[in-house]
Computed example of a mutant assay.
Amino acid sequence: MVLAPDADALEMLARRAIAAMPPLFREHLNGIAIQIEEFASEAVLAELGIEDPWDLTGLYEGRALTEQSIWDSGGLPPVIRLYRRPLLEEWVDTGVALDALIAHVIVHEVGHHFGFSDEDMHAIEKDMTGS
């Protein structure tokens, strides 16, 4: 019997994905928390206009670096939330390696932290994976 990867395994893969990023990005990610949850909350889904909780695999919560100021203080650190069950479902449905899938989601969410466009995030992912 094979068990689905637990939250700790997904967090390990997420941290590996961050460690594989170019140094310029990694140095700005030290304060970002990674949290693994089974699904997004109903409030989060409603805020994003998503009806099906299986449709959301990750979420960045925080202000983009482009919107931060040295005068900011007392705010919560940025968080990347990964939603375990939707990620595992996508993994099974697509056949994509779980580490590659997690890396893809992490790159996308980190892109929000940096204020990048989808094209920028695709280029970063391509540099990381070579494809």
Rank of each mutant, 00 (worst) to 15 (best):
A14N: 05
L3K: 05
Y83C: 11
D99E: 15
G111R: 12
G111E: 11
E109F: 11
I70C: 13
S73G: 07
R15Y: 08
A97F: 03
E125D: 12
M121G: 10
M128W: 08
I124D: 01
H113T: 07
P23T: 15
S41G: 08
D52T: 06
I50V: 13
S73P: 01
L88Y: 13
S69K: 06
D93G: 01
L10T: 06
M12F: 08
S117W: 09
L24H: 02
A40V: 08
L56C: 07
T94I: 02
H122W: 05
I18M: 04
A14V: 04
M1Y: 08
E42M: 12
E90L: 02
H122P: 04
G74R: 05
V107G: 07
P77G: 14
V92A: 05
A33C: 13
T57D: 12
W71V: 15
A14E: 00
E11I: 03
E38T: 07
L48T: 01
A20D: 10
V92W: 15
A64P: 03
S69H: 10
S41M: 12
S117Q: 05
P23Y: 14
Y60C: 02
I36V: 14
K126W: 05
S117G: 07
G31D: 14
H112S: 08
A17I: 07
M121E: 12
W54D: 13
L56H: 03
E11N: 10
A97L: 12
A103S: 12
I80F: 10
D93H: 04
E42I: 08
L88K: 09
E89P: 00
E11D: 14
F39T: 04
F25C: 01
A33P: 03
G95I: 12
G75S: 13
R81F: 12
A100V: 11
A17K: 01
S69R: 14
A7Y: 03
T129I: 01
E37N: 04
